[in-house]
Design a protein around this nucleic acid. Structure first.
Length: 597
DNA sequence: CCTCAGACTTGTAGTCATACGT
DNA sequence: ACGTATGACTACAAGTCTGAGG
């Protein structure tokens, strides 16, 4: 382990590692070719055997604090009778303010699971959720949260210190000579599953995860994490083909949850870099692929036509692939390959446009995708063909799924999958927009506005929406008030300047000259402030229903942004906050001002 | 082939902490 | 110094994609 882990030392050594690794790969590549005369794919990987690390040591996860029963007097009412609560009742009571506790599915699932938890005596007594009154508990929780807000500085400080201590102890691991931050070292506490959209499992009980449920992954020669006293791990394994430190199976979907490293870690950063490199390779052959799928629209084979139209949508509209999902297990959402007849409408003429397709479906996280776009005639005719003799609930692309599509893509370019198109189109859009919008005469705030607009174009393309913030209208109003005030200030300042000038004209004194200068500066300052506020207002208004974060974090090659900052003299802090700078440290190190995606 | 577990990325909402104006 | 609005950060759900195994 190196002695120092300060940010800059780490970054430099990482960069060095990148360089060394290239050499290493080239070397082993040559050796492999000599030995095997085999076709080896050149990969940006640290180890050629697919292993992800050599040494991994950590302290294991932090478990949810044990359940502490409420004071005896805090109970819930059943049909007039006062009863003691349990963990899940508590959770239910805490959610009372949310709309979903009124939903049938939520209540039904909660009721079913809750009854499994209670004693037979309680079971015979409590027979109807609607007769339960949790309001007393709910009140108690509200009081508690008030009390927490009112805590003294010392108490708050103490909690903060304790959190920091836990972070220092459990929040880091050592992977191959580097101390790395762990992403989520705390195990999720028990609670009620919510899920998004119309989830059939909402309200079910998420059980507590115990050490006996947890698999630990670390290297053999490391100091193994200790389970809490009196407990055992489910298993300790030493699998260096994976990157996770601990895992367990969650009880709602039966899926596996992992503890992995923070995005600032080498292992995540490298993967991220690789992702953008793949997207850049797509850039080189996207024209070929596009003309290929346009050819395929004419194919005699239905499956090829479907594949080609689907790919066109993925490319043009940045749709997700759309894997099949198990019915009834999750909310009914779709992506490109899983689109159904009911999700599109065709208009040979709409307003003044020809061949318009209207999309209306729920995508990931049950976010609605709604879009009307004119398509080429051939696509339109194909879609009409795909719709023939089908019911609304039938698959639009009945001869296609993601694995067929991805297999095809793999043949077109090594490492190409459906999601690469999203990355590619997002990044190339940002680069294009930045070129178009940036203007050297602009002030820094105006440049940042341009950046945000470019970012926004991408977010719109990727359909990254958000619910308008609850306080949106009010905060807009506040900002407008500020702008008005500033404007008044400005005219006042201008008047003063004018007066000072007149004064100076009359007296020609040194003192009056100074006053003019002072007043001129004041006007300038206020003008600047006003401009800043106006830019802020524009930015906020345009951003009302758009979430920039996801694209910034997952789709935009950070080197584009870094290069843009360098080119236009915008400090990187204006674009990326601290966490983002840590995540994109590799790009901040690598990209020069002439970087091209 | 097909299915499904597994691993890893992407996504929004909500909570928390802090900067800001009063 | 205080309270609130805002951005940072966390939580954890929900996707994508691969590859093992029948």
């Amino acid at each position: 382990m190196n002695g120092s882990f300060s940010c800059s030392t780490r970054r430099v050594s990482w960069h060095e590692q990148l360089l060394r690794r290239r050499y290493h790969v080239c070397f082993s590549l040559r050796r492999f070719i000599l030995l095997l005369c085999a076709e080896i794919r050149w990969e940006e990987e640290r180890y050629t055997d697919g292993s992800k690390w050599r040494f991994l040591e950590h302290k294991g996860p932090v478990f949810a604090p044990p359940y502490e029963p409420l004071p005896d007097k805090v109970r819930f009412c059943y049909d007039g009778e006062s009863l003691f609560a349990h963990v899940f009742v508590e959770k239910f009571a805490k959610m009372l303010d949310h709309e979903y506790t009124t939903k049938d599915v939520f209540r039904k699932n909660f009721w079913k699971d809750w009854r499994k938890e209670i004693t037979s005596e309680e079971k015979s007594k409590i027979t109807d959720l609607n007769k339960c009154n949790f309001s007393e508990m709910s009140e108690y929780f509200k009081l508690q949260s008030e009390a927490r807000k009112q805590m003294s500085k010392e108490e708050k400080q103490k909690i903060k210190e304790e959190n920091e201590r836990i972070l220092q102890e459990y929040g880091f691991c050592i992977m191959d000579n580097h101390k790395e931050r762990i992403g989520n070292f705390r195990i999720e506490p028990p609670g009620l599953f919510r899920g998004r959209g119309d989830h059939p499992k909402m309200g079910m009980l998420k059980r507590r995860i115990r050490p006996e449920d947890v698999i630990i992954n670390c290297s053999k020669d490391s100091k193994h994490p200790k389970p809490p006293p009196g407990t055992k791990w489910k298993e300790v394994r030493h699998d260096n083909k994976v990157t996770w430190l601990a895992s367990w199976t969650e009880n709602i979907q039966g899926s596996i949850k992992y503890i992995m490293l923070n995005p600032s870690s080498r292992i995540k950063g490298e993967k991220d870099w690789q992702k953008y490199e793949t997207a850049r390779r797509l850039k080189k052959c996207v024209d070929r692929i596009r003309s290929q799928y346009r050819e395929d629209w004419k194919s005699k084979e239905m499956r090829i036509r479907q594949r080609a139209v689907a790919l066109y949508f993925i490319d043009k509209l940045a749709l997700r692939a759309g894997n099949e999902k198990e019915e009834g297990e999750t909310a009914d959402t779709v992506g490109c390959c899983s689109l159904r007849v009911e999700h599109i409408k065709l208009y040979s003429k709409l307003d003044d446009q020809e061949y318009v397709v209207e999309f209306d479906f729920l995508g990931k996280d049950s976010i609605r995708y709604y879009n009307k776009i004119p398509v080429e005639k051939r696509v339109f005719k194909n879609l009409q063909l795909f719709l023939e003799n089908k019911q609304p609930e039938d698959d639009l692309f009945d001869r296609l799924n993601t694995s067929i599509l991805n297999k095809h893509l793999q043949e077109l370019m090594d490492g190409l999958t459906a999601k690469v198109f999203r990355t590619y189109n997002a990044s190339i859009t940002l680069q294009q927009q930045l070129k178009e919008l940036s203007c050297s005469d602009d002030s820094i705030p105006a440049k940042i506005l341009s950046y945000n607009r470019a970012n926004r174009a991408v977010a719109i393309l990727c359909n990254h929406q958000r619910a308008p913030p609850k306080t949106f209208e009010k905060s807009m109003q506040n900002l407008q008030t500020k702008i008005d005030e500033k404007q008044n200030q400005l005219s006042a300042a201008r008047k003063q300047l004018k007066a000072a000038k007149a004064d100076h004209k009359a007296s020609h004194g040194d003192k009056s000259k100074k006053t003019v200068e002072v007043k001129r500066k004041a006007v300038q300052r206020i003008e600047e402030q006003l401009m800043k506020l106006q830019v802020q207002a524009t930015d906020r208004e345009e951003n009302k229903q758009i979430a920039l974060g996801t694209s910034k974090l997952n789709y935009l090659d950070p080197r584009i942004s870094v290069a843009w900052c360098k080119k236009w003299g915008v400090p990187i802090e204006k674009i990326y906050n601290k966490t983002q700078r840590e995540k994109f440290a590799w790009a901040i190190d690598m990209a020069e001002k002439d970087y091209e995606f």
